[in-house]
Every structure is written in structure tokens, then in C-alpha cells.
Design a protein around this nucleic acid. Structure first.
Lengths: 146, 146
DNA sequence: CTGCAACTTGAAGTTCACTTCAACTCAAGG
DNA sequence: CCTTGAGTTGAAGTGAACTTCAAGTTGCAG
């Protein structure tokens, strides 16, 4: 089957070789090796990288992305249906994020009106459903409630 | 004027004392000191922290937040009007993010239909307007086009 | 006035998502 | 065959946004 060396794969996916090696170490993508131990990527891996990039834009951590990708079949190249199932799942996540941000927007509008921006009164800061950041380290936008 | 020690301020703002000290070092908030060098916060600083938390949820870096906060008056406690101006500005940013995510959602829906998720063809991955991640380090959601 | 929780500092540690580096090996065109 | 660009590894570095630690100081209740 036709495969790509890491440089070509990086060019086609728009992800640096170093990042691809990192993804592989972290179990997000796979590659086969030549006799001389060089990576060769199946074209179908491009879809994985595409998925990773989309999920990242939605603010999902690599760990979560890995877990999601783990649902794809291991023994065969994923079909359109496999991808469609995964995509549908993430579209729902994306919609959740959108509605959270819309709520944020509406409430910010309200706060502009009243000029409050008060931690005590304003639902923007302490909404019933916690969208506050949890844990340490750099925060992804609207940390997904686990 | 009535002020709060760091512990109380942390409790009221929902931000850890260590984070508050960090924000101060980074020039995002201010405090006065007691004779014994302990921090005392004005209640009006709570609004700053509220603003910081909201902006972070929208995916803005502390550096950008600091720049935004720098527009508030230094010599007096910000008025409602000061805050309203700032909030209106950030509401626009928030709306931008929302529309980007909506576009993402619509295109992902399309991709589910066609099952492509192809890097080459799919506008999700390489949209004309770069919303791809730039630079290194952990990526904020939908890195704001500078 | 004492005791103890709450505070102070600077320095070092943490996590994520990578990148960079050094030293080395492989693959392919001339 | 030889050169050269592309690839390999592990280890260390980066930047954001904090947290943790150690060693010492302050403020207030009793």
C-alpha cells in the first residue's frame, strides 16, 4: 500500500514532523517502519490528523482526543461510517461549547446594561453549571465538564 | 476604604491566593499594603478579577487581558461606563469566536454527510481565514487572529 | 502578651503541547 | 560508491499559567 515518509506527511497534514512524532508517542497516530526504521504513513492517517486538528480547535485536550480516536477500529482502516460516527459525537461537543459561549455573550450583554460585572450577583462568573477552569496549567477555553 | 486580605479576596473571587499574587506580578491587578507588608484589596478589584475570568473563558491570554485592562483609568476607581466600554469590546471578540465555531460546526456537519474529513478538500482543516494554531505551547481555542 | 493561622518572598516544580538539539543512520541521485 | 538531504533517537528546552515549598513575618483572638 502506498505510504508517505514523515516529511511528505507533515507537508500534507500541515503538522510539523516533531509534532507527528509526539502524537505517535502519545498514541494518537500510527506509522509503519521501513527496513531502515523510518516512518511511513498510510494516507488514511491523514484523516486522524485532520480530526485531531479540528478537535483541538474546539478546545479538546490531546488526551481526550486520544480516547476518542481509540474508538476507531484497530484492525482495519476506518470507513466513512466510522468517521461519521466520531464526527457526529464531536459535533455535539462543539454545539455544547457554542451554546455555552452564547450564554456567556448574552449575559455579558446584560452586564453591560447593568454595568455590574460583580462576582456576587453576576451569573457570568459563577454560573450554576461550572464552566470555571479546573486544575492547573494552561486553560483550554471553556474546559469541558467531565 | 474597606479592603480585603488576600484570603478573603481569594474566597470572594474564586481565584487562589497564589494566582492572585501571580496576576499582580504580571500587572493584571493591584493591591495596597498594610504596615506589615500584607496585601489589602479594594472591592473594586473584584471586577478586574471577574473580567479576567470571563476573558479567559473566551480564550484570551493573560497578556492580552492585561493590555485590555490597561485601558482602565489608573488614578481612579473605574466607573460603570469604563467597564461597559471594555465589556462591549470583549463582547465583539466573543461574537467572533462564536461565529468561527458555528462555521466549524456547519462544516463538520457537511463533512459527516460526505464522510470526507480530508485535509486536501475539506475547508475545515485549511480554511481561507487561518484559524489554525500559531506558535508553540498549549493552544487556546481558536487562537485569535492578531 | 502569647500563640497560631494567615501572610510574605523567591525559587523551583508542574502540565500541556510541542520544538530544538546533538549525534547518528538511511535512501537515493550523480 | 559517495554525498547529501531526510530521517532516527533521547534528552533537554519553551511558554503559559499557575502551584508548591521553605523559611521567615504579621495580625488578631484569647
Amino acid at each position: 500500500m502506498e505510504t508517505l515518509p514523515i516529511g511528505d506527511f507533515a507537508a500534507r497534514s500541515g503538522v510539523a514532523p516533531s509534532a507527528l512524532r509526539y502524537y505517535e508517542r502519545e498514541g494518537l497516530i500510527r506509522s509503519t517502519r521501513t527496513g531502515g526504521n523510518q516512518r511511513r504513513y498510510l494516507r488514511s492517517e491523514l484523516r486522524r490528523v485532520a480530526f485531531i486538528k479540528i478537535a483541538q480547535q474546539v478546545g479538546v485536550s490531546l488526551e481526550e482526543i486520544r480516547d476518542a480516536l481509540a474508538e476507531l477500529p484497530e484492525n482495519r482502516t476506518p470507513t466513512k461510517a466510522d468517521w461519521a460516527r466520531l464526527s457526529a459525537h464531536w459535533r455535539r461537543k462543539l454545539e455544547e461549547r457554542i451554546s455555552i459561549m452564547e450564554r456567556l455573550r448574552d449575559q455579558l450583554t446584560g452586564c453591560i446594561g447593568c454595568g455590574c460585572l460583580s462576582l456576587q450577583r453576576c451569573s457570568l462568573i459563577n454560573p450554576a453549571d461550572r464552566l470555571a477552569a479546573r486544575g492547573s496549567g494552561p486553560q483550554m477555553i471553556i474546559n469541558p465538564p467531565s
